[in-house]
Computed example of a mutant assay.
Amino acid sequence: MGIAIMTSGGDCAGMNPGIKRFVEYSIEKGLKPYLICDGLEGLIDNRIQPATHADVAGIITKGGSVLRSSRSARFFEPEYRQQAYDNLKAHGIDMLVVLGGDGSFRALDVFYREFGIAFCGIPATIDNDIFGTDYCLGVDTALNVIRQATDQIRDTASSSRRAFVIETMGRDCGYLALVSALTSGAEICLIPELPYDLDSLKKRFQAEIADGRTYMIAIVSEGVDFAPQLTRWLEEEVGMEARLTVLGHTQRGGSPTVLDRLRAFEFVTIAIDALVTGSNDGVVFYKNCQMATRSISEVVSGRSEISPVYLEEGRKLTR
């Protein structure tokens, strides 16, 4: 029985450990594993190859995806989905494991309903914004990239008596920014989920400066779209020289942390077991320290939310 794996959407650390586990566990289960390169585009263009242990040797330490990834407008056209299906049938592939996010899962759900190719999704996005799971692959590595950068910036901030604004990724979800702020001792945190009050912040900082504060760290989610403005505000309104650092795509890369390697191992194992036992359109989730699968309809019907405990603490950094 043929089973294939692909990475879709934005890349993240943890994908390569997942690919390695997929090949090794598929062979262990008596399945024939295949690798799909370049995501949905590769599915359409038949960039599909059988996999052996040699294909995944040594990739566990690497960030990103050795299979590469893509987003595909063509996949939303019926003729190209038919082409993708024909490619899979030619290889004898009946099951797919997909590392990606909501968009990838929705695309494969349509594919399953049209052609019956069973799939299991594994949440893999540094935004940590997939409904129903507390954790997505890549999050811990991204948080550690931010932590290291923030710790280093704090060193120079304290030495130069400056304020530093650090912009994190996260699109519409402030998880990376909020968790980074709470774990690095930032003085400001702005995220889409929480309103902020500049007047209140100004009064607080002026009082703290009068009491001896010489520097500060602000962490801002890109979804707020306010990092440059906040940098100017700190100089013009608070009176502290300020600098902006945009971490950008550094957060996607880097060798996966132990947690991301372990979660990849667990996610892929559950995904393959689910497919072998008859699950056709599920997504693996991690909730309250437990792992299982739920239907794609459940996953796409809700909206991911940050822990209320984190939000309550984060609110103190917005005013």
Rank of each mutant, 00 (worst) to 15 (best):
A163T: 14
A163P: 10
A163M: 09
F164N: 03
F164I: 11
V165C: 08
V165F: 03
I166E: 07
I166R: 03
E167S: 12
M169V: 07
G170H: 04
R171M: 15
D172Y: 06
D172M: 11
C173N: 10
Y175V: 09
L176E: 07
A177E: 01
S180R: 11
A181R: 00
L182H: 02
S184Y: 00
S184Q: 10
S184M: 04
S184N: 13
G185S: 06
E187I: 10
I188G: 03
C189H: 13
C189D: 15
C189P: 09
L190K: 02
L190V: 09
L190R: 00
L190C: 09
L190Y: 06
I191G: 00
I191S: 02
P192S: 08
P192A: 07
E193P: 01
E193R: 11
E193D: 13
L194E: 04
L194C: 03
L194R: 01
P195I: 01
P195E: 07
P195H: 02
Y196K: 04
Y196F: 12
Y196E: 05
Y196A: 08
D197S: 08
D197Q: 12
L198M: 09
L198R: 05
D199C: 07
D199M: 07
S200H: 12
S200C: 13
L201I: 11
K202G: 02
K203V: 12
R204V: 04
Q206R: 09
A207G: 13
A207K: 14
A207W: 03
A207H: 05
A207M: 07
E208N: 07
A210Y: 08
A210K: 14
D211I: 05
D211T: 05
D211N: 13
D211S: 12
G212N: 15
G212W: 11
G212D: 12
G212L: 13
R213Q: 10
R213T: 05
Y215W: 14
I217L: 08
I217R: 00
A218H: 04
A218L: 10
A218E: 11
A218Y: 06
I219K: 03
I219Y: 00
I219C: 10
V220Y: 01
S221D: 07
E222H: 14
V224H: 02
V224N: 03
D225N: 13
D225I: 11
D225S: 14
D225R: 15
F226S: 07
A227S: 15
P228C: 06
P228A: 11
P228D: 12
P228G: 09
Q229F: 04
L230W: 03
L230H: 07
T231W: 06
T231Y: 05
T231N: 06
R232S: 15
R232G: 08
W233K: 12
W233E: 09
